[in-house]
Design a binder for these strands. Structure first.
Lengths: 186, 186
DNA sequence: CACAAACCTGAGCGATCGCTCAGGTTGTTC
DNA sequence: GAACAACCTGAGCGATCGCTCAGGTTTGTG
């Protein structure tokens, strides 16, 4: 995504800022009410802009969802790339997976809903592949065998999902770390 | 769920049949249009009954979704219990996980959406726990260590999720089988 | 300072939504 | 066959939905 502040043209710069504002508002709506509740009007109210402003920047509600998924993905790819290596990298990944606060859990639920939406929307599919590729690249140093790597990657996604349900019995960062170590034979 | 044909009272029997009809219609609506598109009117149209009939049997739309999740879960618990043991049990599980037809994939997407809904609806949480417990019980003979078992269980759920995205690069039954064998150290 | 481009909005159309309710039908019981 | 319980429905209220559009404002350009 283009950095708004790098844009010369003041008109476009303002527009790009507004676009971001809307994506952030969308994320808050999803966290609070669910991805199915994203509507032009709700996002507009959350962002404090008139409804038609949403239509101006995103022709359809689906386009808004694609942009939001892309934004979430940007952050995750960045985080994965910054995890580090060896066992510390694994521990950091575990901390990334397991939500420790109720706020983090709400965020996680929102992300899961966004990802699952891709199952029905071809426009979102490339983002899924980007995530999958990023995760696979991170795991490569830990597991040379691609079959094992896919197994661990799916387990990671499964743990994200379980974190979304939370309640007491969800695995915390320490247990996630132990599980990862176990799956990778360490 | 109570078997409708076992009910003596003809009034109640008919009612229970109708209730099932509505749950099945709901599942078809979810497969076609997504869990977010489930509405009293849509389900009614799909089932060929007047809208008020839906309200009569399920006070709110959420109740309909809970009933549908329960129904899906019933089937899965039954299937898991019938998988068998040893490597053949593992192969059968792999066949259960990986969708081979487009129809199976659509069904899988619907199931994932229903499960994820539980993250926001406490009324659905017990069904998640029922599934988790069933899966854990199946895996017990394959892995004594509970940490490893949770790892494999989350991988299974991750593979369900990946099957929902499908496309070419999704793992087929054979690869799922290989992954499972690998994770269980066989 | 004229012109253009990009930004921005209020009003509103037709459709769908969840849910209520008064009243009608069918099946069971005694 | 009277009394009752369960089943069943059409009509409709108020709210929200996606999306369109004509026209107004701000910002950059030559």
């Amino acid at each position: 995504m283009t950095d708004p502040d790098r844009i010369q043209d003041g008109r476009r710069r303002k527009g790009e800022h507004r676009r971001r504002l809307l994506v952030e508002a969308t994320m808050r709506v999803i966290e609070r009410d669910g991805a199915g509740s994203v509507s032009q009007r709700r996002v507009a109210a959350e962002a404090g802009v008139p409804p038609s402003a949403v239509t101006y920047y995103f022709a359809a509600v689906d386009d808004l969802l694609v942009a939001t998924l892309t934004s979430v993905n940007d952050l995750y790819v960045e985080r994965i790339d910054a995890l580090g290596t060896g066992d510390e990298g694994l521990a950091a990944l575990a901390r990334l997976i397991a939500p420790t606060t109720e706020e983090a859990r709400a965020h996680l639920v929102a992300e899961c809903e966004l990802f699952l939406m891709a199952a029905r929307r071809p426009a979102m599919r490339p983002e899924i592949q980007r995530w999958t590729a990023t995760l696979d690249a991170f795991l490569a140093p830990y597991a040379a065998d691609p079959v094992q790597r896919t197994g661990v990657a799916t387990a990671i996604e499964g743990m994200f999902l379980r974190g979304a349900y939370s309640d007491a019995n969800a695995p915390g960062p320490d247990e996630v770390h132990r599980i990862l170590r176990g799956l990778l034979g360490r």
